[in-house]
Amino acid sequence: MELVLALAIGVLAGCGVWLMLRPRTFQAIIGLTLLSYAVNLFIFCIGGLRTGADPVLRAGAPLTQYADPLPQALVLTAIVIGFATTALFLVVLLASRGASGNDHVDGPDGTP
């Protein structure tokens, strides 16, 4: 399982970085989305992998029975903030597209 997840993180991050370095704004936005998937998964996995653990407190269950709540809370926050960043980036992309007439990340200075 660890290997599968590590490979998944690697592939997502690699695709994300590649796309972020591309010249078109839409590529960059997709790249950011993929990169944030990779980072969220990474943070989540740091807490240790648990399948079939209890996410919610039950009476009488030992503490070792539960999934680690801390990385989950962190990632939950990250997901929401990630959405906000994507939306803001999209609007900046649209404004830049309207102002410069092309969709290059450098606006009017980039090649159309």
């Binding site: 997840l5 590590a6 690697g10 997502l12 991050a13 690699g14 990779a38 990474f42 996995c45 992998l49």
Partner: peptide
């Protein structure tokens, strides 16, 4: 970047 992050993730897990 991807390979580095994958290695790091594997080691951390």
């Amino acid at each position: 970047a991807g390979g580095g992050l994958a290695t790091l993730a594997y080691l951390a897990m």
